[in-house]
Design a protein around this nucleic acid. Structure first.
Length: 247
DNA sequence: CAAAATAACTAAGTTACTTCA
DNA sequence: TGTGAAGTAACTTAGTTATTT
């Protein structure tokens, strides 16, 4: 809808009622035939805009009178100024978001590397443990064989010591195997060992880490983490701000 | 009092022009 | 000197709100 007085004043400065819209625009860019506002005018408009981004009608008329402009020109200037200001704001916010994203991405990358290093370290430790277990077992069997052969010459050193009782060896070995075989591959043992007393927390951590594993280790674009982390963020946001994680 | 008409405003997008590298 | 990009005043359109009829 066209504004009443201001519009008429601005548009009807041409005497030709049949003048094309383009020509009218050309002729009416400014009532003083000046294309751009003066520095003084801009300065005043800017100052007013800083105090209020929307002008009251009375102030608009007053400002227009002070600057020698039509009230409509002031209104339009404020409209344009709001639009420019908004797009600048958007640009600023976009840059901030992009910077935050880049920071998060690099932090994510370094955590990813750290995690891989920890996983391989864990694997190495597991292998070491397995080896020492096997050696222990081998040594144990060798001793028992020796004991069995020389049992007639020696009394048992300790009756409670199962190794001194050849007939008890088998069940004991079975018991030992039962208790220790693959112990370090057992998730519960790992948790007990590394998170002693905090198994529940460990479970939560595992739940968080595991879904991310596939995207961390796969060759797929890691940006696919979005769907996984959405849940993660939702879960944790109720307890503490997720960004605390990075601090 | 409800509903239609009108005036005044807004945001978003466009046009015509100037300026400058 | 010509040209394209950027900036800007003025405009159009469609929507909202307040006031009047």
């Amino acid at each position: 809808m066209i504004e009443g007085g201001e519009y008429s004043q601005a548009m009807m400065s041409s005497s030709d009622p049949f003048m094309s819209m383009k020509k009218m625009k050309k002729n009416n860019h400014n009532n003083n035939n000046q294309r751009r506002f003066s520095e003084e005018q801009i300065k005043s408009l800017e100052m007013m805009f800083e105090s209020e981004t929307r002008l009251e009608p009375r102030k608009k008329v007053q400002l227009a009178r002070e600057l020698g402009l039509q009230p409509r020109q002031v209104a339009i200037w404020f409209q344009n100024k709001r639009a420019r200001w908004k797009s600048k704001q958007l640009e600023t916010e976009y840059n901030i978001l992009r910077q935050n994203y880049n920071n998060l991405a690099s932090q994510f990358e370094s955590l990813k590397k750290e995690k891989l290093a920890l996983v391989s370290e864990l694997q190495r430790l597991n292998e070491d443990m397995k080896k020492s277990e096997e050696e222990e077992q081998r040594e144990c069997c060798g001793d028992q064989a020796v004991v069995a052969l020389s049992s007639t010459d020696h009394e048992s050193e300790n009756e409670e010591n199962p190794r001194s009782e050849p007939e008890d060896i088998k069940p004991e070995i079975e018991m030992y195997e039962k208790d220790h075989q693959g112990a370090l591959c057992d998730e519960n043992n790992i948790k007990r060992e590394y998170f002693g007393g905090f198994e529940e927390e460990a479970d939560q951590l595992m739940n968080i880490v595991e879904p991310a594993d596939s995207c961390l280790t796969s060759s797929d674009d890691w940006r696919g983490f979005k769907s996984d982390t959405t849940n993660l963020l939702d879960q944790s946001s109720s307890n503490y701000p997720w960004w605390d994680f990075w601090s």
